[in-house]
Write a protein that binds this DNA or RNA. Structure first.
Lengths: 111, 111
DNA sequence: AGATTATATATCGTGTTACGATGTATACGC
DNA sequence: GCGTATACATCGTAACACGATATATAATCT
């Protein structure tokens, strides 16, 4: 089963910031980490993640730096900022509140 | 805290179908039920729910019928169809898979 | 040799969606 | 008279994920 595009919309930022709270990573690497960690449920495309990374950097949640490679395309690493960590905490908070609320509604009867 | 618009996007259909799997309801009533059940976390506007109900009916997940009122605007009740029940089960399935996957990713480290 | 796949970045167009704003109409309390 | 509640409807907007496309190198498969 593929997860619907619309479901993804609320959590992509959270997923990315969460990865980067562990260590600096580059876009292509984040895609794979999310894929692995989610047990192949999430398979973000490149056209999805790069614009998000750009956006997050512009908003001050991330900072980037290039690392030159030989025989491979250069890698653009992202580092989470203090502001990004705050954002992540907010997002996780909201996520918990949100999932709890949805479950409260759909568990009206025994599903 | 208000839940972000984008987070809502994946679950509105599920919430509505879930309400209607209990009993026939009209739009205005669904808004309040969701508000109550979610403990005021969700407060859908009318401009949100009516288009969704129309869409779901067009897609064959719901059927509607009017009930005349005296001294009040008439009420348009919605009844979930067999197809709607299947849809609800699919959505709940996807929801569980989705939340589990997100938690797998964000629990990489102790959050 | 040629094609595909993997690595790694970037951007553009498209479709979907929730939501506020606006409109219609009745009734009740201040 | 004015706001609020009940109950429906529609329109425009902004945000977003995603596929498609482009670029470039290297390894693997046919």
């Amino acid at each position: 089963m593929k997860i619907s595009k619309e479901l993804m919309k609320g959590s992509t930022v959270q997923l990315i910031l969460s990865c980067l709270s562990d260590e600096d990573m580059y876009g292509y690497q984040i895609i794979k980490k999310i894929k692995t960690k989610s047990k192949n449920i999430f398979n973000m495309g490149e056209g999805t993640i790069y614009p998000i990374l750009h956006r997050l950097e512009k908003q001050g949640f991330l900072k980037s730096y290039w690392e030159k490679q030989i025989g491979l395309p250069d890698k653009k690493y992202y580092k989470i900022t203090e502001k990004g960590i705050s954002k992540l905490h907010e997002e996780i908070n909201e996520w918990k509140k949100y999932t709890k609320a949805v479950n409260n509604v759909i568990n009206m009867k025994s599903v």
